[in-house]
Design a protein around this nucleic acid. Sequence first.
RNA 1: GGGCCUGUAGCUCAAUUGGUCAGAGCAGAGCGCUCAUAACGCUUUGGUUGGGGGUUCGAGUCCCUCCGGGCCUACCA
Length: 578
Amino acid sequence: MARILITSALPYINGIKHLGNLVGSQLPADLYARYMRARGHEVMFICATDEHGTPAELAAAKAGEEVSAYCARMHAVQAELARGFGLSFDHFGRSSSPQNRDLTQHLAARLAKAGLIEQVSESQVYSPADGRFLPDRYITGTCPACGYENARGDQCENCTKQLDPTDLINPRSAISGATDLEVRATRHLFLRQSALRARLDAWIDSQQGWPVLTTSIAKKWLHDGDGLQDRGITRDLDWGIPVQFDGAPWEGMEDKVFYVWFDAPIEYIAATAEWAEAQGLSDAAWRRWWRTDAGADDVRYVQFMGKDNVPFHTLSFPATLIGANFDGTEPWKLVDYIKSFNYLNYDGGQFSTSQGRGVFMDQALEILPGDYWRWWLLSHAPESSDSEFTWENFQAGVNKDLADVLGNLVSRVTKFCRSKFGETVPEGGAPGAREAALRAALEGRLRAYERHMEAMEVRKSAAELRALWVLGNEYLQEAAPWAAFKNDPAQAAMQIRLALNLIRVYAVISQPFIPDAAARIMAALGSGDWSWPDDLAGALEVLPPGQGFMVPDVLFAKIGDEQRAEWAARFSGQRAEA
RNA sequence: GGGCCUGUAGCUCAAUUGGUCAGAGCAGAGCGCUCAUAACGCUUUGGUUGGGGGUUCGAGUCCCUCCGGGCCUACCA
């Protein structure tokens, strides 16, 4: 039994995430977590809401709430949606937790002690009307290069020229529209990542088999131009983790907070501490996952994220942890494997939170249960390149794979048995060559499925699982128990007993993809044996003759053409305000 | 501008990192079955692997070039 630590990129707090966000991190992370638990490994699956930063403040203001109240409310909303999608976090934390505050301040202090923190004076645009410093992209104005009037302070979206906010003509606040902007001097802490560049480079080089997407992005940042740049880790905001030093104000840093990207990954650790507290456990319970001097040396740590998150997970966060261990007294667990994903597009364009384009998690669950989405999204995960959601493809995938291949199989087997033998696993008959061939075919595909799941090859895993389901239909067609029943009822009994057991095995192995449907199958069959079919022959005899079962309700309803058309129309345009 | 990824049958994707690999699923066509959510099974039609050139005994697989799509480019997170 191995110990596996799994983290999903943290969903940001300002609103409900769309399906692209879901399939890029939380969903595949959950798939892996469920699979590893099913294989008997000890798993710690951590996620949390990422709550700090300017967008959270603005979203709260827009909602007319205190930012802390807003975050608490949205955290509850996101947690509920996560449950709806069957996301099996061991803990779904909050980056605003006391644990994260303490740990973030602690790690910053360690980095300072290591000489990896530097105070830098810089000029920032301040908006008196908004009462805040404005991040570059919250300043808009006319692009000096192309004349586009809504250019952002970091880059003109029209001509793609990179800008400095002070380049803009007629700059104004993107928040209030205020034009009385001024440039003020401010001081910030910088993490001297550049000092760790060689360490990070060697560390990346030492990793085996990481996705190209992961390493190429990391390498780009390490070697592009002047190499890895130091990074500001503080901001002039109210909402965030105060920049303090062992509880005392950090000189010159009064009224500042840590940059959200500094504290967000630290929340992976802090959330584990939150978990320990919630479980009534001691610090040792979470430290054995995160400190190699406290038991984490045999932990395998896997992170899941969209490609936009890669730089922070390959560079900044490792730099934080490596730097904090400058004297060898705080060996933090570094990630062992980073599974990164491309983007899921929506029907020819991008999902857009701001434009309300695409399907959001709450809307998805209003339409259909989580399993439908889990299956389609995972079987189309954007692993090698961006992939695309279309209602036609969604309908086809759900109807064919879930309703026809798996759902109908469960239906035909249980209903046939009920009509010929009653709702009891029938006895009699002896397996023959056909059954041996089925077992061999299952064995081959099951091991392939396991290999793909181990390797986090999400789409290949889904394809293999589907192929396993198909074997059931093939067997039934060949065995034809409805024909055998006429002349040799015992033969038919054996065949259908095997089929019932096969369905149970399908429930067990399909559980990582479609946990709810799997549970319904198991409940209908009256089985609570979720053990993985390492011994396939044995697993196919778990349901003994005489055991009662029930015909389950239709596992997956089909999506009709009219319904599909209606949904396509409903989600094409502006999302109604939630 | 720079960097990275990507372009394989109508659609979604595979091809053990140069050696029968040109494949699967869906869609289409035909046949079969009738237990089942008009479901299932079998057979089958589609591709000169974006265009062009090159290396090699041999290239979706390597090189050059052109065309198309996407992402990143460090103060959104």
